[in-house]
Simulated assay, not measured.
Amino acid sequence: MRRILLFIATNLAVMLLLTIVVKLFGIDTYTYRNGGINLQGLLVMSAVLGFGGSFISLAMSKWIAKSQTGARVIDSPANATEAWLVATVRKQADAAGIGMPEVAVYDAPEMNAFATGMNRNSALVAVSTGLLQQMNRDEVEAVLAHEVSHVANGDMVTMGLIQGVVNTFVIFLARVIGAVVDRAISGNREGGSGPAYFLIVIVLQLVLGVLASIIVMAFSRWREFRADAGGARLAGREKMINALARLSGNHGENTLPKAIQAFGISGGDLRKLFSSHPPIEERIAALRAGTAR
């Protein structure tokens, strides 16, 4: 449960920070007029904050991923394994019709990998040392193909758009409901001016943000099936199935930073509604049945 709460807290952090900035600079006051809520102005402000926070995070995703994992980008391969990694990603990127991503290795005991970046032609694909040590080359090839498929599908940008829409409605509804509750408690007909209103909005954003994350996680699970199918096309279905089967042997806590766990190939949780990844057995079954999209 702790990992889920930390993951959700990371997604909400930018929104809460922007909410505080909005309050401190008095921007909230422009969303009220004649003692009532200016719904059009509030929606515009909510969209600016919601999408702004989402795309700021997306723009910083490569830098955050590198700094938090300590990933080392392979500029000049130091050994045969690194040379093979770069050559394999280049071949898959060409087949997928995208620009060559940066290829990196990060130190972690579990088998994992992730892809991130704002632009499908300037992405980052990284694998853990644990994955390289515990998988054979066919399985690693499939994992790389899965991550390249994420990039080719534009999953990072799409996830940013969905998060932006969700953020917009969380901010909007928190303020509408907050104004109603504040009026009921304080009798303030102007709305949105007292400290109670600000505290109510913060609490509502947290609660609504947690509920809204269910939508984002549902998309995240769907995109894993689609990336599995893409990985099967690029590397071969049996290689993809074998790689997933090997991943089922992961033990212990996922050491990817909370901010990028949704971008890893392995990162599910028993609480399915808040899980970024479907159970591996479901992913294998979809590949065997040919229903992964």
Rank of each mutant, 00 (worst) to 15 (best):
P109F: 15
V148K: 01
R72N: 08
V103I: 04
V22K: 06
G41Q: 08
I260F: 12
W222N: 13
F225K: 02
N112Y: 03
G52F: 08
E253D: 14
E110W: 04
L131W: 06
M111P: 00
F172Y: 15
G164K: 03
R3T: 12
I260P: 00
T29R: 15
S122A: 15
E253K: 14
G192S: 04
M135P: 10
G249R: 14
R233N: 13
R246C: 06
A87S: 14
A243W: 10
G192Q: 04
R33H: 11
N167M: 05
E139M: 12
I185V: 15
V157L: 14
M60L: 15
T158L: 13
S193N: 11
D94G: 00
D269T: 12
N112E: 04
G230T: 05
A78K: 15
L58M: 09
V165N: 03
M240C: 09
F198K: 01
F51V: 08
G231K: 02
L85G: 02
L247Y: 09
V89R: 01
K66N: 02
L204D: 09
G236C: 06
M60I: 06
V151C: 05
P279D: 10
A227H: 10
P278Y: 05
A95F: 07
L161F: 14
F198V: 07
G99F: 04
I200D: 08
F198S: 08
M15W: 02
A179C: 11
A115E: 01
A113I: 02
M15F: 05
L273F: 14
A218F: 15
I215F: 14
L144T: 02
G70K: 11
R288G: 06
A9W: 13
M111R: 14
A87P: 00
M135V: 00
E82W: 09
F7N: 00
Y30C: 00
P77R: 05
N119E: 04
A95Q: 15
I64V: 14
A232Q: 07
G41K: 09
L244M: 11
L256H: 07
L85C: 02
N188H: 12
H146N: 05
A235K: 05
S193P: 00
V157C: 01
G192D: 03
L270S: 13
V48T: 09
S61F: 08
N254Q: 12
